[in-house]
Amino acid sequence: MKQTDLVSKRIPCRRLLRFVPAIAWMAVIYLLSSRTGDEINAILPFFQKFFPFMEDFNWGHFVSYFILAMTIDFGIGARADRFWVKIVIVLLCGLYGVTDEYHQSFVGGRMPDPIDVRNDIIGAAIWTAVAAISPIRALWRKIAS
């Protein structure tokens, strides 16, 4: 087998490996969604020590899906700079948010909430908007290369 054949076979693997952070973050979201209402409410006071303005975990949806959009952007690479790809990133995050809410319907003390999906989409959209700012985009491409 020629060396060029080996290199061409490695490139798809390298592209797939770029999605490992997104898959890992999806697992984190899934694990947090698996916690019962009592377990989630028990850790709220810990976060309130650092963020006294927190009344609930709604902010967690913004942050979690901001990070998910960032990791999907990383997986896609430079092509994520295109406007339609940014829309796809937000839609993928929204779809995962819907499946996450469905998953929560099976967890004690938790129930699906369309407001959570809205917050998921807003968090993802904020990442795509921030990543479109020219200096940030340039810095992100250096980091993500």
Score class of each variant (00 low, 15 high):
L31I: 09
F74T: 08
A80Q: 08
I87G: 05
R82L: 10
N41P: 02
F51C: 11
I72H: 00
F66E: 00
G97Y: 02
I87C: 09
L91W: 06
A69K: 12
I126Y: 07
T99C: 13
W59T: 08
W140R: 13
I40M: 15
Q48E: 04
W140F: 12
S134T: 04
A131V: 01
H103N: 04
W25P: 13
V85M: 15
R141G: 05
R82Q: 10
G123S: 08
L139V: 14
I67S: 00
R14V: 03
V63E: 04
T4E: 11
E55Q: 04
A132M: 11
F106T: 13
L91C: 02
L92S: 12
W84Q: 12
A132E: 11
R141K: 14
N119L: 13
W59Y: 10
V7C: 00
D81M: 00
V130F: 07
D100E: 14
A129M: 15
A129W: 14
P21H: 14
L91Y: 06
C93W: 03
E101M: 13
G60S: 02
W25Y: 11
I143H: 06
G97M: 01
Q48F: 03
G108S: 14
V85Y: 12
G109M: 13
C93L: 01
E55T: 02
E101C: 11
V98C: 08
D120C: 01
L6E: 10
A129C: 15
I29G: 10
F47W: 13
V98Q: 03
K9L: 02
M111I: 07
T36E: 06
A129T: 15
F47A: 14
P112F: 03
S134E: 07
I143P: 04
K49N: 15
Y96D: 11
A144S: 14
A125V: 00
R141T: 12
F51S: 11
G108W: 09
W25S: 12
Y96K: 08
A78S: 07
V28N: 14
W127L: 09
R10Y: 02
I87V: 15
L17W: 10
V117T: 01
I121D: 02
V107G: 04
R14W: 06
A131I: 00
V63I: 13
N41M: 15
L92A: 13
N119H: 01
S105F: 03
I136D: 10
S8D: 11
R110T: 15
S8Y: 07
R18W: 03
D5K: 08
P45C: 08
L92D: 07
K142Y: 10
W127N: 09
S33P: 11
A124C: 00
L6I: 09
F51Q: 11
I122W: 07
L16V: 11
R137A: 13
P112I: 07
F57T: 03
G123M: 00
R118C: 08
V130E: 05
W140C: 07
S105L: 02
F74L: 03
G108N: 14
P114T: 08
V63P: 05
